[in-house]
């Protein structure tokens, strides 16, 4: 596996940040065309999610319309079998996906960084034990574990989904961060910091973490992406919170509510398409970060 040149990225970012007032990492990402498109798309999703009550013509749960109608002027994407407006659900669904992505992504990243840093920096027995758990986390089949955990849970809710996703998703990031810190900790500047009298906590926070920023960002993006997909999958399987409107639940209801047989293609196509677009925006942003971190992948 390639070791990622996170120090290099950090340096480029610092250099770029000097020229303009924006943060350096942003300048770098913005320069990459693919990444720029991704950022604009993501911004659009965030805007829609935040402004959902303004954008959506109706509430997501308002079921006072004629059931199972096709697209029309009043209902751009038709109505559900229960008589709800599909387009409004779609708009509110963006909230769920983004919240799950953000929260589960953050939690996963925090755990991955904490475990990875501890294992990599301390080494010895602590590392052996943590590495075992990391490897265990990697080999245990994720979705079955999610399903079983969700199956045992007494209440179904978004919080549960987030917890399940976090519990099952931290291992991959932790492994990468551990590998990275193992290369960073042997740098001479770490030894120099020790001889300068700095404490271990300070060394980790001021000498190591700044050099891992890009790796942590990439890890967060990956986790958020995984979380969004997992939430949609679980909701589609009917294991999500029935009270929350999400694209996964919409697909689940479309499939149960006979969208396949009644020919309501809009109800079926739309949630999948927006999900695909959201994933695309993340992928495009990741392209920018990847190309920077790994010189081999740069297109030249």
């Amino acid at each position: 596996m390639t070791s990622i040149d996170t120090e290099g990225v950090r340096v480029t970012a610092l250099a770029a940040g000097r020229v303009s007032r924006l943060p350096g990492w942003f300048v770098i990402l913005w320069r990459n065309r693919k990444c720029r498109i991704g950022l604009v798309m993501l911004a659009a999703f965030v805007a829609v999610a935040v402004l959902a009550p303004v954008v959506a013509p109706y509430g997501p749960r308002v079921d006072e319309f004629a059931a199972s109608t096709g697209p029309s002027g009043a209902h751009w994407l038709g109505t559900t079998a229960r008589g709800e407006d599909v387009f409004s659900q779609l708009v509110y669904g963006a909230r769920t996906s983004l919240v799950v992505g953000l929260v589960a992504g953050l939690l996963t990243t925090v755990i991955a960084v904490a475990v990875g840093l501890t294992a990599g920096y301390l080494q010895g027995v602590v590392d052996e034990v943590l590495s075992f758990f990391i490897n265990l986390g990697l080999v245990i089949p994720v979705l079955p574990l999610m399903i079983v955990l969700a199956g045992y849970a007494p209440v179904k809710g978004l919080g549960l989904i987030i917890i399940v996703i976090t519990v099952t998703g931290w291992a991959f990031g932790a492994r990468i961060k551990r590998a990275q810190i193992i290369t960073l900790r042997t740098r001479d500047y770490i030894t120099a910091a020790k001889f300068a009298g700095d404490s271990t906590a300070r060394i980790i926070a001021f000498e190591i973490v700044p050099n891992m920023i890009s790796l942590i960002v990439v890890g967060f993006m990956g986790s958020a992406l995984g979380a969004i997909g997992a939430e949609a999958g679980l909701a589609f399987l009917g294991l999500g919170d029935p009270q929350t409107t999400s694209w996964g639940t919409m697909l689940n209801q479309a499939s149960l509510g006979g969208a396949l047989t009644t020919g309501q293609w809009a109800w079926l196509v739309a949630p999948g398409l927006v999900l695909a677009l959201l994933i695309t925006s993340f992928t495009l942003i990741n392209f920018g970060i990847d190309a920077l971190s790994n010189p081999h992948l740069r297109e030249d």
Binding site: L14, A192, K194, N211
Partner: peptide
């Protein structure tokens, strides 16, 4: 830690001896 006030190091590789972000 106290002792290290009195003994210091000069490293071989000047590119690895300084933190690129500091």
């Amino acid at each position: 830690r106290k002792y290290r006030r009195h003994v210091q190091l000069v490293f071989q590789d000047p590119f690895s001896a300084l933190n690129p972000t500091r």
